[in-house]
């Protein structure tokens, strides 16, 4: 906003403190995952013992597997369902569209704990046993609205005549869908899938309420284990941090690298 467009010394100090505030706790937990002792406050030497313990711990490894499997399944299902619903929605009557959009926003606008208890009572009423199935259904339920929110703007800027033209030229509806519409809205689908994956991967509150019978994800495990000192949580946390950061860097760097390659050609 200033003419010279340079961050002054005061601004640099603010940004420095901000970076410290955001990343110090993350670094702290990574450093202490390599601590030789049980202490959370005194670093007594480098060791990999908490990682060994983590990989040997069956509940921890199961939680990692459940988290990844649920996140992948929920992402695939909610991306497909959300994309199809968004396309259908873009061609629906205004009244229906308004209602669906309002209901779709409920899980996003409601406090998570409210969504969670609603699902808990619903699953219990229809008699599904708490566990993998309820966890997966719940994750699909809260991920899909984000996919729709991310795909819909792309559909609004899409020329509706394109699909009609394809149909007039003899394409089947499926061909018109997969060869004309979907490629045009691909960026929205990809960012929707990414949001769905991280929402599912990181979810705690809804999962905590709807799961049971020993099916835990990483968040639930961290919550229940944090009641007493257990440095394996640091190792598990580090694993989560590294996985998500690498995924984010890849996603953020791909468009950047593509741009670069295009420029160098």
């Amino acid at each position: 906003m200033e003419k010279d467009k340079k961050t002054g010394i005061g601004g640099k100090v603010i940004l420095g403190i901000t970076a410290l505030f955001f990343y110090l706790p993350i670094l702290y937990i990574i450093v202490f995952s390599f601590n030789d002792s049980r202490s959370l406050t005194k670093f007594s030497g480098f060791s990999l013992r908490w990682y060994e313990k983590m990989f040997a711990d069956r509940t921890m490894m199961e939680a990692v597997v459940y988290t990844v499997v649920i996140a992948v399944l929920a992402t695939v299902v909610s991306t497909i369902v959300g994309t199809l619903a968004a396309i259908g929605l873009s061609r629906s009557r205004r009244a229906l569209r308004n209602v669906v959009e309002q209901v779709n926003n409920l899980p996003i606008m409601n406090p998570e704990i409210v969504t969670a208890i609603g699902l808990l009572m619903f699953f219990s009423a229809i008699g599904i046993a708490k566990g993998f199935a309820t966890l997966l259904l719940a994750h699909i339920m809260f991920c899909t609205p984000y996919v729709i929110l991310s795909v819909s703007p792309k559909l609004r800027s899409l020329d509706p005549n394109l699909a009609d033209a394809a149909l007039d030229l003899g394409a089947t509806p499926v061909q018109a869908l997969t060869k004309v519409i979907v490629p045009q809205i691909m960026p929205g689908i990809i960012s929707g899938a990414l949001i769905a994956f991280t929402m599912s991967f990181d979810d705690f509150i809804i999962s905590y309420f709807v799961t049971g019978n020993g099916v835990n994800n990483i968040s639930i495990l961290v919550y229940t284990m944090s009641k007493r000192v257990n440095p394996s949580i640091n190792a598990l946390s580090t694993l989560v941090i590294v996985l998500i950061t690498v995924a984010l860097l890849i996603v953020n760097l791909i468009p950047f690298m593509r741009e670069r390659r295009r420029k160098s050609i």
């Binding site: 369902v81 199809l84 619903a85 396309i87 259908g88 929605l89 061609r91 629906s92 229906l96 669906v100 209901v103 779709n104 409920l106 899980p107 409210v114 969504t115 208890i117 609603g118 699902l119 009572m121 619903f122 009423a125 259904l137 339920m141 899909t144 509706p160 699909a163 009609d164 149909l167 509806p173 018109a176 869908l177 519409i181």
Partner: peptide, 29 residues
């Protein structure tokens, strides 16, 4: 324009069951 419109109906059913019913249950309880 009418093509693909029906693709929204399964989702309407899904949100009615998975979003609306749980909310109504909170009210009922």
């Amino acid at each position: 324009m009418r093509q693909f419109r029906s693709m929204v109906y399964p989702y309407v059913l899904w949100i009615a069951i998975m979003i609306v019913v749980p909310m109504l249950m909170i009210l009922l309880y």
